[in-house]
Simulated assay, not measured.
Amino acid sequence: MAEPDIDTCASSSSDDLIHVLAVDDCLVDRKVVEKLLKVAKFKVTIVESGKKAMEVLRLNEEKIETPTADDQKIDIILTDYCMPEMNGYDLLKVIKEHNCLKSMPVVIMSSEHVPERISRCLDAGAEDFIRKPLKPRDLKRLRNFVMPVTPTSVTGMKRKVPLEVLPENKSSERRPRLAGVVVA
């Protein structure tokens, strides 16, 4: 049986879309991920194995050049954990070992909820661990890993601000109030 080809799907204005490299050995799961991502206006490259993902990322041994995410303009990797030959954790480790790719967000997904597996992936640099099947609400999380919410100069609008952007001096900052909790 021949391996399926790499399938890249995108709309006509794909240059401004977030490009997701989705890796899953299950055809049904690949189709679900592909459909959800396309409907949510992501550019999608689907592969069926970690080894194929390495080819797309130009991490295979035959290449002498330095791999770069810009070659394919991949913005984020969404990979299944349980796959033959190379699982999602092994793919994550390979990606994080390359200086030019280690800042690329990698999200692991699995139908199995194994806390040790989740911790191991997060400790190795995964941005998140998502339970399968992928759901529409998960797509916002994927988008936020590529385009983090940053403060804007627009006044009167509430935005989430990453903690590292908050000012160090406490003289003029407003402290958040949580229902029934006082922040000291």
Score class of each variant (00 low, 15 high):
143 R>E: 00
143 R>I: 01
144 N>Q: 08
144 N>R: 11
144 N>H: 06
145 F>E: 00
145 F>R: 00
145 F>K: 02
145 F>G: 01
146 V>L: 02
146 V>Y: 01
146 V>H: 01
146 V>M: 03
147 M>D: 09
147 M>S: 11
147 M>K: 15
148 P>T: 03
148 P>L: 03
149 V>D: 05
149 V>N: 09
149 V>A: 13
149 V>R: 11
150 T>P: 00
150 T>H: 08
150 T>V: 13
150 T>Q: 13
151 P>W: 04
152 T>R: 05
152 T>H: 03
152 T>L: 07
152 T>G: 03
152 T>Y: 00
153 S>N: 13
153 S>M: 12
153 S>F: 10
154 V>Y: 03
154 V>A: 08
155 T>W: 10
155 T>D: 13
155 T>G: 13
156 G>T: 00
156 G>Q: 00
156 G>L: 01
157 M>I: 15
157 M>T: 14
157 M>A: 15
157 M>V: 15
158 K>G: 08
158 K>L: 15
158 K>E: 15
159 R>F: 05
159 R>N: 07
160 K>S: 13
160 K>E: 14
160 K>D: 12
160 K>R: 14
161 V>I: 14
162 P>T: 08
162 P>N: 08
162 P>A: 05
162 P>C: 05
162 P>Q: 10
163 L>G: 06
163 L>I: 13
164 E>F: 10
164 E>R: 04
164 E>M: 10
164 E>W: 06
165 V>M: 12
165 V>R: 09
166 L>V: 10
167 P>Y: 06
167 P>D: 06
167 P>R: 06
168 E>T: 11
168 E>Y: 04
169 N>T: 10
169 N>G: 04
169 N>R: 11
170 K>Q: 14
170 K>N: 12
170 K>C: 12
171 S>M: 08
171 S>H: 04
171 S>Q: 11
172 S>H: 07
172 S>P: 00
172 S>N: 09
172 S>G: 05
172 S>C: 03
173 E>C: 05
173 E>K: 06
173 E>N: 04
174 R>A: 09
174 R>Q: 12
174 R>F: 07
